[in-house]
């Protein structure tokens, strides 16, 4: 039924002005900045990177679409950019030689289990890309830890190749810093080039699309703990700088742990969350059975976010004052 209106004026509650930010704008900015590690992955891993990235993004969008349609939701949510981010992030955490079918499974699980079963954007408890990655890791542990060297490194034995962290943990080999910075090492698609990750992270920090407390907290904690261990026994433990540059720490600290939906909403909670991730990373890297633990650390701290939010309410202006 057509509604009749007495006047042309719109009525609403205050405020009548709105800022310029919007959810898709934030999402597409992040997508744009993710192009930095994407570029490095394509440069170092060539067609493999392109293949994995494309499959991951397409399957993510497709899964999202299926859920939106079957739940009779607004289809335009498909283009809010969040599914694309999940697709790219998942791809960036995968080893470059991974079979396409695994990528499909991973992307599907990311969106379906990581996001849509909770009700879609804004409601998920865990970082969707990492849920997909953890599922793949548990399903196909061998394939997920088989690394191939970057295409520009003309290696004879191209079948297997160790990541810097794996190399250190199992063979005690330190990858040169130059390689770590540029990205000329083994590893998952997006984690190798430290320099691009740092640049991207800094842009996000300037745009305030990520909370500065999270990367700061994580990196400082790792640096301090690893530094302490290094001081105790430089023979056994690696230089803290190596730990920060190697592996997925930068990718995790700037792009994964900072996922708005799955990080705490209170400042104090955010600090605890960040430090918690740092501690777990060191714990798993140094004492655990796996060389890398960024993914697990973030997922575990994601689980604590509701509790952190609940118990770290900031002090209201004037709270506790005498009346």
């Amino acid at each position: 039924m057509e509604k009749q209106y007495a006047s042309d004026f719109k009525i609403s509650s205050s405020p009548h002005l709105r800022g310029k930010e919007s959810v898709p704008k934030i999402m597409y900015w992040v997508v744009g900045i993710l192009m930095l590690p994407v570029a490095s992955s394509i440069y170092f891993f060539g067609m493999n990177a392109v293949r994995i990235l494309l499959i991951s993004v397409i399957v993510s969008l497709l899964t999202e679409y299926i859920f939106l349609v079957s739940r009779k939701k607004d289809i335009s949510l498909l283009f809010d950019g969040s599914a694309i981010i999940t697709g790219i992030l998942l791809a960036l955490t995968l080893p470059p030689g991974l079979k396409s079918s695994y990528v499909v499974i991973g992307a599907f699980v990311s969106i379906a289990l990581g996001k849509q079963v909770f009700g879609g954007l804004g409601y998920n408890m865990f970082n969707p890309a990492l849920v997909g990655r953890a599922f793949l890791q548990a399903s196909f542990p061998v394939a997920m830890t088989t690394w191939i060297p970057p295409v520009i490194q003309k290696m004879v034995d191209a079948k297997t190749f160790a990541t810097p962290l794996g190399g250190f943990k199992f063979s005690h080999i330190l990858t040169p810093y130059k390689n770590l910075l540029i990205g000329n090492t083994g590893g998952s698609l997006g984690e190798t080039s430290a320099i691009l990750l740092i640049v991207g992270g800094i842009i996000l920090l300037i745009k305030k699309y990520i909370d500065w407390k999270i990367p700061t907290g994580i990196l400082l904690t790792v640096f301090v703990l690893e530094g302490g261990l290094y001081l105790i026994n430089p023979e056994k433990y690696a230089n803290p700088l190596f730990h920060i540059l190697a592996g997925g720490l930068l990718l995790g600290a700037f792009f994964m742990a900072t996922d708005m939906v799955t990080s705490p909403i209170t400042p104090k909670g955010t600090w605890i969350y960040a430090v918690g991730i740092g501690v777990l990373v060191v714990l798993i890297r140094v004492f655990g059975g796996l060389p890398e633990g960024v993914m697990y650390s973030i997922l575990i701290m994601n689980a604590f976010v509701p509790l952190l939010n609940r118990y770290t309410r900031p002090k209201i202006l004037g709270e506790g004052g005498k009346k």
Partner: peptide, 15 residues
């Protein structure tokens, strides 16, 4: 068929 190891592990049971 690539075995989905996760299914026979605890997480698989829950899922």
């Amino acid at each position: 068929w690539d075995k989905w190891m996760v299914m026979i592990l605890p997480p698989g049971a829950f899922l």
